[in-house]
């Protein structure tokens, strides 16, 4: 009897919690025709709804499913890095045509599984596969989807440097900053380009760089950003995915500028002046398209650059003066032309 009361209470509680869910549930998935192309997406520990590259990769998958009716997509979210290998194997063992690993941190796992399944196509975002010693590998069935983040970083760096030089910013301490997640190449390349370009425009500018050690908890990035703003940063560049939303929010609260990352983030905060864009969704889409069309490139897949539209920048909520936009265009063209090459290594 006691038991049944407990059940009543638990069920009742569940029902109450579930009320909002009822409104929102729907089912997705159109049936496809033609030879199926099964695509599996394995997220890193950030999960699908990380508001960062896992999310963007998922958008790319959905776009592909929309455009190619024979593409069937599935997702596995990794709860810890222990799940990387089983999740990749899970798709490969089921005869998936393409398995996409999202993120630099899966470099070793992809190499391990790709060697086990030489007939399955793999793609990994932000990295090449790597061996146990961290050396990158060239595997014919793995397509590394690499981006020249430093080029996107450079464009927003130009804006930041010009604004500082113009002296129209709030704090006037000639300081800008970047909030990184964890110090991994894709993050550091963004920041390297940003710093290089800002100092190219305004050699005296002080560029603060901090890491939150996290890609998902916004409070951490917010605290780092607040610290930087406290030290006089007028412009905060977030390079930390979902965590970085906290940095954007900190800038809004303090009334200073912010720069978004990966995707156009002007909707996420008021003071976003631009976003350094990296089209993970496009890369994912193209990788799927390659498999659909039988043009899988493997290790020969070219990097995504300003030149081919794989990276870029998106304007924000603040109208920039014409000399700034002109300068951005100038630098953009120079990079595309190869006359300017932003650095890829960290120098801080």
């Amino acid at each position: 009897m006691k038991r049944s009361r407990l059940q009543f209470v638990v069920i009742g509680a569940l029902l109450l919690l579930l009320v909002p869910a009822l409104a929102a549930c729907g089912s997705g998935g159109n049936s496809s025709s033609g030879p199926k192309v099964k695509v599996g997406l394995v997220t890193d520990t950030g999960g699908l709804n990380d508001k960062g590259f896992n999310h963007l990769a998922y958008v790319g998958l959905q776009n592909a499913m929309h455009d190619f009716s024979n593409v069937v997509g599935s997702v596995k979210e990794s709860k810890s890095d222990a799940d990387y290998i089983p999740n990749l194997q899970g798709f490969a063992s089921q005869g998936y045509n393409l398995v996409i690993a999202v993120g630099f941190l899966m470099a070793q796992a992809v190499a391990t599984v790709a060697k086990q399944y030489p007939n399955v196509h793999f793609a990994i975002i932000d990295s090449t596969p790597s061996d146990a010693n961290g050396n990158s590998l060239t595997l014919p069935n793995v397509e590394p989807l690499l981006f020249h983040e430093q080029e996107a970083g450079a464009l927003v760096g130009v804006i930041a440097g010009m604004l500082e030089k113009g002296g129209t910013t709030k704090l006037k301490k000639n300081t800008i900053s970047a909030v990184g997640g964890v110090s991994i190449p894709p993050v550091d390349k963004y920041i390297a380009g940003y710093k290089w370009a800002a100092q190219m425009e305004d050699p005296g500018v002080n560029v603060l760089v901090g890491y939150s050690q996290d890609f998902s908890d916004p409070t951490k990035c917010k605290a780092v950003a607040n610290s930087q703003i406290g030290l006089g940063s007028d412009i905060v560049f977030q390079v930390a995915g979902g965590c970085g939303l906290g940095a954007l929010q900190a800038a809004d609260t303090a009334g200073v500028y912010s720069i978004g990352v990966d995707t156009d983030q002007k909707a996420d905060a008021q003071n976003v002046i631009a976003s350094a864009v990296k089209r993970v969704e496009v890369a994912t889409y193209l990788a799927i398209k390659d498999v659909v069309n039988g043009h899988f490139q493997g290790a020969n897949e070219p990097a995504f650059t300003l030149q081919n539209g794989g990276v870029g920048f998106a304007p924000g909520n603040i109208t920039l003066s014409s000399d700034i936009t002109a300068e951005v265009t100038k630098v953009e063209n120079a990079i595309k032309a190869g006359t300017l090459t932003p650095p890829t290594q960290r120098s801080w």
Partner: peptide, 28 residues
């Protein structure tokens, strides 16, 4: 992940099941 990947039901269902197991054991 198999359930989520193949039947599109969030794998967090597993956490819910674990918690309910714990509750009903705790009460008894």
């Amino acid at each position: 992940p198999v359930m989520q990947g193949n039947a599109n039901v969030s794998q967090n269902l597993v956490d819910i099941i674990q918690a309910v197991i714990l509750f009903s054991i705790a009460a008894n």
